[in-house]
Design a protein around this nucleic acid. Structure first.
Lengths: 149, 149
DNA sequence: CATATATCAGACCTTTCTATCTGAAATATA
DNA sequence: TATATTTCAGATAGAAAGGTCTGATATATG
């Protein structure tokens, strides 16, 4: 395997996408979310707990409880979700795995990978939950996938 | 964790870098390579076996044996090494993990991730072992790291 | 031919990631 | 207050990746 984000991080991002399409004041429970997204429920529970600790989600126990966004949707970027689950190592670590690789001691990939990595960062740092919510509204495919309307 | 390549793939790329700096006809044994790069020797052995099967390296048993490049250095791109170890899933799989994500059914990241992923591919597909060998020659840092000259 | 040196093949161990299970704690509602 | 519903916390299980070990096989060299 390879690829940018861990599976748990993918789940977190998918879950946040789902939350972005919900009314922001009411709580959504994890049975509905995991059912709809096809994600193992207990694992998504653990994952959302991490997002609660990171103050990205709020939780409420008991009947009518569940999760909702902890902040205004335009205040949270997807980067914050990635940071809460996978951390930020990918921003600094060498793409070839050389521990001592750096700007003044670059590996053969360093000068090409740096700008690309920055653009990956920009991609998730600039896109907020509000942006995603808009895109979901504009895409019938995504709406049906997430069971909206 | 996250990041593009698996650890084994990083080892393979580092090992190929080392081979790029060696005379191409003679064999280099794995004790020297793993020592120099700080990689666990048996694991690098396994990894190089995969590169032999992929016809990127040739091996020779016995005294004076070891590994050497199986082709001319300008005929092998770093992509071939990545393909031999990690495969090419990263070229097609959705960055958010949606199985059904595609051009006509895009996830909210699809249109931004696609071009970036293509550039990652270009980066490793265009760079050959010969290119890397040149860069190593031109960098005193890399030469000392790899113990050249 | 004997020996030392190297890769090869397969089994095995360890660590990390993914996923599940259980019971406790909180809370809406009857 | 009793009950059902939900998250929470910690332990546990399973799967995959990373890493080790052993013996077999090939070969250069004395």
């Amino acid at each position: 395997m390879s690829l940018i984000f861990s599976r748990q991080c993918e789940y977190a991002l998918q879950g946040i996408l789902y939350m972005a399409a919900q009314p922001h004041e009411s709580y959504t429970n994890i049975i509905e979310i995991s059912d709809r997204l096809g994600i193992p429920m207990p694992f998504l529970g653990k994952t959302f707990q991490l997002l609660v600790q990171a103050k990205i989600l709020q939780s409420q126990k008991g009947p009518k409880g569940g999760f909702r966004l902890a902040k205004a949707p335009d205040e949270v970027a997807l980067f914050h979700v990635v940071d809460a689950i996978d951390g930020t190592d990918f921003l600094t670590s060498c793409v070839l795995g050389f521990p001592e690789c750096s700007g003044r001691n670059p590996c053969p990939m360093h000068n090409e990978w740096g700008p690309l990595r920055d653009r990956v960062y920009q991609m998730i740092a600039k896109k907020t939950i509000a942006d995603v919510a808009r895109e979901i509204k504009d895409s019938r495919q995504l709406r049906t996938k997430l069971g909206i309307r």
